[in-house]
């Protein structure tokens, strides 16, 4: 029962803040709503007994990526008068495209969803803890994990090149 109550509260907060993110004119307001949305998403991960992912969400997204985004927004010295609010035409285009996507994929979902007899499995001891996820990473996914460092290195070099004053 308590799980259901928590799920609905967190889901409502998440969807509400998601809508705030895409409707604000001021990007700072969007970014702050985004931080809240990530917090509620981390709580949802914790509800799914994904402890490691929940911590990762807070540390990397709310603590890293969003700070970076807010930093850049403030760095650029934007004026609120130059920013355009959400336009009705844009909303209509987005809704139309979403409707087309829904018509395309909706029947597939409706066919697939009842077939899978989906219920939550009984979990082994320590499911989703840092220890068990670490064990998985360093046994089955060692090579992709090492490749990840290459991706990050590429990103660092790319950012340095892009932010040169004379491109």
């Amino acid at each position: 029962m308590i799980e259901a109550v928590l799920f609905y509260i967190l889901a409502a907060v998440l969807v509400g803040l998601g809508l705030v993110v895409i409707t604000r004119t001021n990007p700072i307001a969007s970014a702050l709503a985004m931080v809240g949305a990530f917090g509620s998403l981390a709580a949802l991960y914790a509800l799914l007994s994904a402890t490691f992912v929940a911590i990762l969400q807070i540390l990397v997204y709310a603590g890293g990526i969003m700070v970076l985004i807010i930093f850049v927004i403030m760095l650029l010295n934007l004026h609120l008068d130059d920013l355009k609010p959400m336009q009705a035409k844009g909303i209509l285009v987005a809704l139309a495209l979403l409707g087309v996507l829904g018509i395309a994929f909706g029947p597939v979902f409706l066919m697939v969803l009842p077939q899978g007899n989906w219920s939550f499995a009984t979990l082994p001891e320590g499911f989703g803890s840092i220890f068990s996820v670490g064990e998985k990473i360093f046994s089955d996914y060692l090579f992709p994990f090492e490749m990840l460092s290459l991706v990050l290195l590429t990103a660092v070099v790319g950012v340095l090149v892009l932010s040169k004053r004379k491109l």
Binding site: I22, K84, M86, L95, L98
Partner: peptide
């Protein structure tokens, strides 16, 4: 929601966040 944001907004930051 994210798709709607990417498709309908013109602000680069909000597109990135979506």
């Amino acid at each position: 929601i994210g798709t709607a944001g990417v498709l309908s907004r013109k602000n680069l930051f909000i597109v990135l966040m979506s």
